[in-house]
């Protein structure tokens, strides 16, 4: 713990004043003549003429969310485009914020499993904890969209239904065949 009395230079305010102004002036001139770097990652901010500006001009430039980022939900489709979800209510049970609403139904034409007739997530209630992803036994809900829930102008618009949630690349696990009682009509690629 450095705790000493002040040296004469510090006592007269001068020395630290000059040092402090030096720090600011250095930043000022560096940034003034700096080469504005749009990617604010410090690791990429090395090299000639690179400045230290850490601001991101938000709508024009955005920081890409990291791969593991818990963003907006999506319902993972199967290869045939139907949701992987089997309406087991695990995610709704695990959700601390109770933002998931599910109504189950059965496929008429395909004897596979249950499916969600309605699957709605209230993104305003959601606290983005990711427990639903962890709770899903079918890998049917994911938060890997790389975006956040969009801003809405009224509360009902923040409730996302099955159609708007069902997007993104399809996923097929090797164990999935165990759950199909008859083979899929569209064979896996």
């Amino acid at each position: 713990m450095p705790r000493t009395d002040l040296s004469p230079g510090e006592r007269l305010y001068l020395r630290e004043a000059v040092r402090g102004m030096g720090v600011l002036a250095r930043h000022f001139w560096k940034n003034l003549f700096g080469f504005r770097d749009p990617a604010p990652e410090v690791m990429e901010r090395k090299g000639r003429g690179v400045n230290l500006v850490s601001t991101i001009n938000y709508p024009e430039e955005r920081k890409e969310y990291p791969p593991g980022y818990r963003g907006m939900h999506r319902l993972v489709p199967r290869l045939d485009g139907k949701p992987r979800c089997v309406a087991c209510y695990m995610c709704a049970t695990a959700c601390p914020a109770q933002c998931i609403y599910i109504e189950a139904g059965e496929y008429e034409e395909e004897a596979i499993e249950k499916y969600p007739v309605r699957f709605e997530i209230d993104e305003l209630r959601c606290i983005v904890c990711g427990f639903c992803v962890e709770a899903c036994p079918k890998d049917a809900i994911r938060m890997d969209t790389g975006t956040h829930a969009p801003a809405v102008l009224s509360r009902p618009l923040a409730v996302f239904d099955k159609e708007s949630l069902l997007r993104g690349p399809a996923v097929e696990h090797s164990t999935d065949v165990l759950t199909y009682r008859v083979p899929l009509k569209t064979p896996p690629r």
């Binding site: 990291p66 983005v128 904890c129």
Partner: peptide
């Protein structure tokens, strides 16, 4: 804050969220 941002970016990459880590 600038220094904190750098660390919160790392936290975000590690846990998936900056503040609500869980």
């Amino acid at each position: 804050m600038e220094a904190r941002e750098l660390l919160w970016d790392r936290i975000s990459e590690l846990t998936g969220a900056r503040v609500t880590t869980s």
